[in-house]
Design a protein around this nucleic acid. Structure first.
Lengths: 222, 222
DNA sequence: AATAATTTTTAGATTTGTCTAAAATAATTT
DNA sequence: AAATTATTTTAGACAAATCTAAAAATTATT
């Protein structure tokens, strides 16, 4: 089934809110979407008629099974595009959201399947959020900053906490990017610095400060 | 200035039609866009009020300077996305049009600039159509099928005339893709077969029939 | 429990883009 | 040149998505 851009935006927002509370109320959705309560009510009727939500007047609402599946499909598209924009086009992670907001509504399953493959089936987006798989399952991967990765264990770089010019310069220099496979060879208690190895590159050393700002997830977890 | 998806589609269609005839008439645009003449008239009023077209009632219309610039920006986006879909995601060129139709309306200049760079500033899309540059200039590059490329002259593969499984298998095998730099070392009059060299690969031989279906453009032209 | 305050819904209007049917204009034919 | 035909525009309606203002329902307060 196909949904309009507006419907998709509502679905996504409801999904986001119901994560925190059990049932969502009209006003909070209106605030979250920067619109009026009346507009929300109108859309709720439509989403109900399309069987995406449970909704009782004056009571509250939530996505049903079908609605949740749809939300996850949209979130998957959004996060894959964000990953693309950062890793392939070199945009900063704090700039990609509004563009992914537009790209996520392009509705071709084949496109998304190919994009996913092209990007190497990433599990975590550049903000560190998990990317639902094609079945709508959210990977549960714990991320740790590089200084907390046990030595000899490899991790995949999922995100970096700042994308200042200075930080990016250093990461580029060492060949560290999102998706890089990285292993801590040795950590020095003296100053917290780490000797690390990135696949197919010679070992190098980075400061503890740098390591605190690089996040990785466990390679092996299924 | 920002335009709606619908406005952009009209701009693009007018551009396409006025290429052939001098002024465009309401009915032909309606047919071209699969809509009614009345809808076209409505939109013409809006495009006129936004100063994109010259339009005199009952007479005809055409894009003005500003409208043409806008059309070329849209076409640029469309063709860059087509190039992306074919060269990066491996889609067939005869499948990419409807997806590019959606992607072309994503309106971020930074996105397009980066996409262009990422793709290597391509000049020709996978259908063999020129891609306007950032200033809206259409490159004028003559394309020839590989069997017509003079020996010792290098060309860039711009398109292939069929994307059957069999064709793609062969191209993959030889490492020939859109954007490949290719040189004819020797052509054999006996059967039309060609010995060719693709940059960074050993020389190989392809049949005359294959060569007729591979199009290249002149490397050197500015 | 009655009143006040808050939240949600309805009623009706607006904007964008579309449509059909009818009127206006232009082009063709006799 | 008058009549017929074709094209284009207008008038009025409709669907989607939004809004404001008022009414209805719920929740909180005295």
């Amino acid at each position: 089934m196909k949904f309009s851009t507006s419907e998709e935006n509502y679905i996504k927002s409801i999904y986001g809110l119901q994560g925190k509370t059990e049932k969502v109320n009209t006003n909070s959705l209106a605030v979250h979407m920067n619109t009026r309560a009346a507009s929300v009510t109108d859309m709720l009727k439509k989403l109900k008629s399309k069987k995406l939500i449970e909704y009782k007047k004056y009571y509250g609402f939530r996505l049903n099974e079908f609605g949740n599946r749809e939300a996850l499909r949209i979130i998957r598209r959004h996060r894959l595009w964000e990953f693309f924009l950062v890793t392939k086009l070199g945009m900063n992670w704090d700039k990609v959201h509004p563009i992914a907001e537009e790209l996520e509504h392009v509705s071709s399953n084949d496109l998304i399947k190919r994009l996913d493959n092209y990007l190497g089936q990433p599990k975590i987006d550049p903000h560190g959020d998990p990317i639902p798989d094609a079945q709508g399952k959210m990977p549960v991967l714990k991320q740790v900053s590089l200084d907390n990765l046990p030595p000899k264990k490899t991790g995949i770089v999922s995100s970096v906490s700042s994308q200042t010019h200075q930080m990016m310069e250093m990461l580029n220099h060492y060949g560290i990017g999102i998706g890089s496979q990285i292993k801590v060879l040795k950590s020095f208690d003296f100053d917290g610095s780490l000797q690390i190895k990135i696949s197919k590159q010679p070992a190098c050393t980075i400061s503890g400060q740098a390591a605190q700002n690089i996040f990785v997830y466990d390679d092996q977890e299924k």
